[in-house]
Nucleic acid binder design. Structure first.
Lengths: 142, 142
DNA sequence: CCGTATCCATTCCGATACTG
DNA sequence: CAGTATCGGAATGGATACGG
């Protein structure tokens, strides 16, 4: 029963971990943000075995991260599209990307201006904080 | 040779994925941010098998996320502490936490004011953006 | 207390072959 | 193109026993 435990873990990080499943899922989500939606696109992009991809996609759909929609170009097929919940994962992707390195094949930009976007910590007052300004405290709701 | 491929992947997300390894590592990092540092603390907190924990800690140290430092209370033992690189993972943890849910055993606060901190997308001009305002574009460096 | 070493079950992953 | 089915190898994970 390995890591099923995480699904009911009280920590949202752990539950996110469980929901997204494994890293394949996250890379699929990354590709989805990059505009990919077809089974073959994911398969080519990730080089993952097709059976694994099938399982991952199914899980992502079951978890409400992706949904199957009619393909835009060819009505005979379906496409995988991010749900609202799925789009909520963008900060995770961007945070990983920012941590990974600077030069990236995918960069986040403002949809309107096309300018570079970054993830920042902001206090309630709106003040920009560095990671060192931030600490994780044990709890007390919200 | 499974997923070793990711280590040389050009995408920083994929490389982060490889560096952090698996979800255990991320949960260890989460605990480290929460002030934990001793082997036993991780072991108790995560309920992970000790041999697995050993491997994960070793990998995190090798990847420069954690480092071994003399224990503060008992000089006979060592503690695992986040490196600068490791502290850079905080946005990832917080992003996962924000996505996971609202009520959390760990919340990020401003170290100085104690007030709630959130991760936000900001354009270069400083304007706050929603995830829907942001798109991932294929590349062109930095 | 802090690991290491071993054993075993489960799972993951990749390759391949096959269907519609 | 979009999967499904099966197979074997590798890695993960848990439990336990052992040593510094």
């Amino acid at each position: 029963m390995r890591r099923t435990r995480f699904a009911t873990d009280e920590c949202p990080v752990a539950r996110s971990v469980e929901a997204v499943g494994d890293w394949w899922s996250l890379l699929i989500v990354r590709d989805a943000f990059a505009g990919k939606g077809r089974f073959g696109e994911f398969q080519t992009s990730l080089g993952v075995a097709k059976n694994i991809l099938t399982v991952r996609l199914r899980k992502l759909v079951a978890d409400g991260v992706l949904e199957l929609v009619p393909a835009s170009d060819d009505s005979a097929f379906k496409e995988y599209a991010l749900t609202g919940r799925g789009r909520g994962l963008l900060p995770v992707i961007v945070a990983l990307g920012q941590w990974g390195c600077t030069s990236s094949p995918f960069k986040p930009v403002d949809r309107k201006t096309g300018k570079r976007v970054r993830l920042e910590f902001r206090s309630e007052g709106g003040r920009k904080l560095t990671p060192d300004d931030v600490q994780l405290v044990p709890a007390s709701g919200t």
